[in-house]
């Protein structure tokens, strides 16, 4: 019994005893740590993602629609106002021409009537 317990103690001491690291162990650990650092700085997964084509704002229909709406809102009132102004100027010019035309017509008809009256008086 005492011999058995003596063997056991011996085995236990051997198992728990200090054992030196194998040769080159420290160097391998340092190399692994350095490699891990590099992976953190530039993860392989991100680095390998395919690059998406860069879209300009003009290729985005929604942005384009908003831009067009803003442009229209800015331009339409000015165009309408300009059109109204031109139409009014045309109308005023047409009115002036009409009054001149009618006045000349009236003047000519009155002169013709006066000439007829004058010539009929002369014949009498």
């Amino acid at each position: 019994m005492s011999q058995d317990s003596g063997n056991f103690e011996k085995q236990l001491r051997e198992a728990l005893g200090r054992e030196d690291a194998p040769a080159g162990f420290a160097a391998r650990v340092l190399a692994a740590a350095a490699a891990e650092k590099q992976v953190r700085v530039m993860p392989v997964a991100v680095a390998k993602l395919p690059k998406l084509p860069k879209q300009s704002w003009m290729q985005r229909p929604f942005a384009l629609a908003i831009a067009a709406t803003i442009a229209a809102l800015a331009i339409v009132p000015a165009v309408v106002l300009d059109y109204q102004r031109r139409e009014e100027a045309r109308g005023m010019k047409a009115k002036q021409d009409l009054m001149v035309a009618l006045s000349i017509t009236k003047n000519q008809l009155q002169q013709a009537r006066a000439k007829v009256q004058r010539s009929s008086r002369n014949t009498q």
Binding site: V100, L102, S103, T105, K106
Partner: peptide, 22 residues
């Protein structure tokens, strides 16, 4: 025709400034 030769509505030519018609 009476309107055209009369005074109804049409101003006399002397009252108009004939500035650059048509």
């Amino acid at each position: 025709l009476q309107k055209l030769s009369g005074t109804m509505g049409i101003p006399d030519i002397r009252q108009l400034d004939m500035v650059k018609p048509a």
